[in-house]
Deep mutational scan, measured.
Amino acid sequence: IQIFEKGDFSGQMYETTEDCPSIMEQFHMREIHSCKVLEGVWIFYELPNYRGRQYLLDKKEYRKPIDWGAASPAVQSFRRI
């Protein structure tokens, strides 16, 4: 998965294949504004440590949070399923 600090795949980008319990600790990001799921299925969580509201992401590109069903870019953790 590739995660971006700004919408439309702009700003700082990080790519990982590992679960992330805290985007702040692992990537020094506060929010995720866009992402590209390159393979597999992932779950975004609103809070750290896989808690809070969940969003299921299939293999595709998400230009903004509304594309994965979120009203805001408040994603604090994610993991692959």
Rank of each mutant, 00 (worst) to 15 (best):
H33D: 14
G40W: 02
P65I: 04
Q54G: 06
L38W: 08
A71M: 11
C35T: 14
W42V: 07
R63L: 15
A70I: 15
E31H: 14
I23E: 00
M13Q: 11
D58V: 11
Y50A: 01
D58F: 05
Y55A: 04
G40H: 02
G69M: 13
F78R: 00
Q12V: 10
G52S: 01
I3E: 00
F27N: 04
K60D: 02
F4G: 02
G7K: 14
D67T: 02
R80W: 12
Q12D: 11
G40C: 03
D67A: 15
S72V: 15
Q54P: 03
H28T: 12
T16V: 07
Q2D: 06
I3Y: 02
R30V: 04
W68E: 06
N49L: 06
P48S: 05
S77P: 01
K59H: 15
Q12S: 11
E15Q: 11
Q76E: 04
R80Y: 00
P73L: 15
L56S: 07
Y14C: 08
N49R: 05
T16Q: 05
I66C: 15
Q54N: 14
G69W: 08
Q26C: 04
F9E: 03
G7Y: 08
A74Y: 04
M13E: 12
G69I: 14
A70W: 04
R63E: 07
E39S: 12
A71Y: 03
E61T: 02
I81Y: 01
Y14W: 06
G7I: 12
K64Y: 08
I3S: 00
G11E: 09
I32S: 05
M29G: 13
L57S: 15
I32R: 00
D67R: 15
L47W: 05
F9C: 13
Y62V: 03
H33C: 12
C20E: 04
Y55G: 01
V41I: 05
V41L: 11
T17E: 05
E31Y: 15
M24I: 08
M24W: 15
K59W: 05
R80E: 02
I32C: 11
K6W: 02
Q26P: 08
K60R: 04
Q2F: 15
F27T: 06
I3C: 08
P21Y: 05
A74W: 04
S34Y: 01
H28S: 12
E39I: 08
S72N: 03
F44I: 03
F9S: 06
K60I: 03
L56V: 04
F4Q: 00
D8Y: 14
C20M: 09
M24V: 09
G69E: 10
E46L: 02
W42H: 01
Q2V: 07
R51A: 09
Y62S: 04
R80Q: 01
F44S: 02
Q26N: 03
Q54E: 06
Q2Y: 05
A71H: 13
K59Q: 08
I43G: 12
R80P: 05
F78A: 04
I23G: 04
V75T: 03
D67Y: 04
M24Y: 05
C20G: 02
E31L: 13
I81M: 02
E61V: 14
D58R: 12
E5K: 09
F4H: 08
W42S: 00
G7E: 08
K6V: 12
R80D: 02
F44E: 00
H28G: 13
I66T: 06
S72Y: 15
T17Q: 09
H33G: 11
C35S: 13
E46K: 02
T16C: 11
C20S: 06
G69C: 03
G40F: 02
T16I: 06
F44H: 01
Y50V: 00
L47A: 06
K60P: 04
T17F: 09
E5C: 08
E18D: 04
A74G: 13
F4A: 02
G52C: 01
G11I: 02
L38N: 05
S72F: 06
V37A: 14
W68G: 04
E5T: 05
W42M: 03
E61L: 04
I3N: 01
Y14K: 09
G69V: 06
R30H: 11
Q26Y: 14
K60Q: 13
P48D: 07
Y14D: 09
Q54W: 02
L57E: 01
I23Q: 02
E39C: 07
V41A: 13
I66K: 02
E18I: 14
G40I: 01
Q54V: 07
Q76V: 11
E5W: 10
C20N: 04
Y55S: 01
I81V: 11
N49S: 07
Y45M: 01
R51T: 14
Q54S: 11
Q2E: 10
I1F: 10
F27D: 04
Y50I: 00
G40Y: 04
D8R: 14
S10H: 05
L47P: 00
I23A: 10
E46Q: 12
M24P: 05
W42F: 06
A74Q: 12
A74C: 15
R53E: 12
S22N: 10
R53V: 08
T16H: 09
K6G: 10
G52A: 01
S34R: 01
L57P: 01
K59S: 04
R30C: 10
K64V: 10
R30K: 13
Y62P: 15
K59T: 14
I1C: 14
R30Y: 08
E39L: 10
K6N: 04
L47Q: 04
M13N: 05
H28E: 10
P48H: 03
Q2N: 15
S10Q: 11
I1H: 10
D8Q: 15
S34Q: 01
E18A: 05
A71K: 15
E61N: 12
Y14L: 12
A70K: 15
P21F: 14
W68M: 15
R63F: 08
F78V: 07
G40K: 02
T17R: 09
G7F: 14
F4D: 00
I1E: 00
K36G: 03
S34V: 00
D67S: 12
Q2R: 12
Q26I: 06
N49E: 11
D19V: 07
S72T: 05
D67L: 02
E15I: 03
Q54T: 12
L47R: 10
W42E: 02
M24D: 05
K36T: 08
R63S: 08
T16N: 11
I23M: 07
D8I: 11
P21M: 06
V37G: 05
W42N: 01
G11P: 11
Y14E: 15
